[in-house]
Amino acid sequence: MDLKDQNALAIGKYSFSSRLFMGTGKFSSSDVMCSAVKASGTELVTVAVRRAKFGGYDDILQPLLKTGVRLLPNTAGSRVAKEAVYAANLARDALETDLIKLEVHPDPRYLLPDPVETLLAAQELVKQGFTVMPYCQADPVLCKRLEEAGCACVMPLAAPIGTNRGLVTRDMLEIILDQASVPVVVDAGIGAPSHAAAAMEMGADAVLVNTAIAVAGDPVSMAGAFADAVRAGYAAGKAGLGKSSLYAVATSEVDDFIAHLED
């Protein structure tokens, strides 16, 4: 990427031109996934660590790497900090990257991240030299604690994973954005390009989208639509939105025109 890019996003020692990060789950095939990745313009995509099933697994890494993206392994499936730290170490050895999306969610019904275990795991992973990107509750206090622990960004949820419900946590996200000194990546629950644009207008540094693209009628077109929305939302946020008002505010001075007719 262009080093002079004023709009680049820095997360730890990494830099990204695209502010749309993508998940790779739930796509109907590797081909569709890779085409969507290309259409999204993303530079960072998530993958997960699992026990190998021999003879039946689809190698997604080689086609993904051909698209030129950087891989962000996650610790999904971990229920406690210890498991997340183990998963992170496996991922670092497998992919030769210190990037880790920390996810600790013990409850399969809502997949909400455990704040206590997430913080404990973040502290340990920072100590072990990882660039930690924690998926977390949209809790402003927790986000500050994760930042103090040395995380490279925070990734508060908009709504539970895969629900497509949009910015359910909007009010808390506003406080997080107001307080944060590390990048804020809004993750999970973003269901439409308009949700992504709204998050970026509010000042989010990036969004991570998976389900909304993967399960769309046409995932490749949807990936392009998200790319446009993220760019538009980011530009709008930087430009500074006008103030909202209860009463109408005329865009031209009608008084002079009326006065002229009465002459």
Binding site: G23, G25, K26, A48, V49, R50, I60, N74
Partner: peptide, 10 residues
Amino acid sequence: IEIFTMIAGG
């Protein structure tokens, strides 16, 4: 002994 691979995920 356990062998781990990377799979698709969010």
